[in-house]
Each structure stands twice: as C-alpha cells, then as structure tokens.
C-alpha cells in the first residue's frame, strides 16, 4: 500500500520529466566517422591533406610541426613533406594570412583548427562525426557568394576546399546529395580521404589522448592493487571494533 502511494506520488513527476526531456531543437543526423585514431598511415595521409588543403586559410597555432613525431614521422620527413611556410620544425602551424586581411576578404577570419575536433562535439555526435559528415556535405548553391552550401552547416562561409577531390555535388528535390561532376576520387576514395583527414584533426585536437588512456589503465591497475592492501589494512585495524 505504502509503495503504491509512493508510486502514485512520483508517477506525475516522471511523466512531466519525459515530456520535458523532448527537445525543441532540430535534429542533426551525423554519419559515424571511422575510428582511425591509432592508424599512423591514415594519420600521416590526413596530415598531408591538412597541410595541403586546410593550412592555407586555417591555422593550427597550438600544434607544433615536430609533434608529428607522435604519428611516426621524423623531423626530416616533416621538414621535407609538410612544412611549406615555417622555418623551424619546432614552430607551430601558423599561416601567412593576417586576420585583418582574412576578415577583409572573407567577412570573417577562418577559425584555428587545432582543437576543432573537440569543439564540434554535441548531443548529435562526436566532433569527428560532425567533421566527417560536414566535409562530405558540400553542394553547389549559386545563391551563395562562394557558390557552395552545406547541409550540416547551413550557409557556411567556407567554399568546398576539397571539391577537386570529391567533384561537384548537387542537392536533389528530396534533399539528398549526389555527385554531378566527378572529381579526382571515387566517392569511396573520397570518404576514405576525409576519414583520414578527420582522424588527423582528432589526433591534433588532443595528441596525448592515446598515451593518456594507456597511462590511465596502469594507474587504475595500480590503484586496484592498492585497494586490496588498503582494505586488508583496514580490516586488520578494525578487528577489535564490535
């Protein structure tokens, strides 16, 4: 009886809560980005795409070139293949364009991309998911000043920097995107390339993340062992407390 009374008391609250939990905002469907965070070949390929296609307008100013040793590159490899504007391998990934110029040319300065994979996370998916979907969702839109629009980021300021690779997509009447003019890559190859780029952006967002997890495992194992001893010690001391 008492239980039923309590249940009756709480039922309306839970009913209210479930109604309240229903969101008001629009749904955003994101494709799941393939997990390539530990695949060095993919990360190196992603780094190559990043410095060739992104690092002209976007900086990655918290990221130093020689940090790329993390993904299996030597200083010499970095210097020869990835550094176009910097002098020294310890420099951060800056760009030549000034913010004032960028604002004058594009209306807004392109954001720094070092931690974009972290900032783009939301209730709809992880940051890499967002980026993976976004970079595959550009379509031709003559109404936009750049000629490009995006289904994930409506009225985006950035033109489709990778259009050479993907080709030109158009948006059908059903809202679905299809490649109208093929690019250098097949759709499968393009998805693969974007996945590599996104993996690189994810790596760059937190280079330490894999080491962090490895260390964490050791810390927790250590604490687990310590717990056994701590508990045994407590038992020993508490033997005489009744």
């Amino acid at each position: 009886m008492k239980k039923r009374m309590t249940a009756l008391l709480f039922a309306p609250i839970f009913a209210l809560l479930t109604t309240a939990a229903q969101g008001a905002g629009a749904e955003l469907h994101l494709d799941k980005a393939p997990n390539k965070r530990t695949d060095n070949a993919a990360l190196q390929h992603g780094a190559k795409i990043f410095v060739n296609y992104c690092l002209n307008c976007h900086s990655a100013s918290y990221m130093r070139y020689n940090r790329l040793q993390d993904i299996g590159l030597s200083d010499a490899q970095i210097r020869e293949n990835l550094m176009f504007t910097a002098e020294k391998v310890g420099e951060p990934m800056r760009i030549a364009m000034t913010r004032a110029d960028a604002t004058a040319w594009f209306g807004a300065a392109p954001p720094d991309l070092t931690i974009v994979a972290r900032s783009r996370a939301s209730e709809f998916g992880s940051g890499p998911d967002w980026l993976y979907t976004y970079l595959r969702s550009f379509y031709r839109d003559e109404a936009r000043p750049t000629g490009w629009n995006n289904t994930v980021f409506e009225n985006v300021g950035m033109p489709h920097a990778l259009w050479e690779l993907q080709g030109i997509q158009v948006k059908g009447a059903d809202g679905k995107l299809s490649v109208e003019v093929p690019g250098k890559m097949t759709p499968e190859q393009y998805d693969e390339a974007v996945a590599d780029l996104v993996a690189y952006l994810q790596y760059m967002g937190e280079p330490v993340s894999e080491f962090r997890k490895k260390l964490g495992l050791m810390v927790i194992v250590f604490l687990g062992i310590l717990l056994v001893f701590a508990y045994a010690l407590k038992r020993e001391y508490w033997k005489d407390v009744h």
Partner: peptide
C-alpha cells in the same frame, strides 16, 4: 585507515574520468 580505503575507491573512479 578506513578513509584510505574510501580515498582509493574515489581515486579509481576519479582516474577513470581523468584518463
């Protein structure tokens, strides 16, 4: 002695989040 046990359990949960 008892609180040391509590501290270790807490640190396990805390480390799981941190790492």
């Amino acid at each position: 002695m008892k609180d040391i046990v509590g501290v270790v359990v807490f640190l396990i949960v805390f480390s799981a989040i941190v790492f």
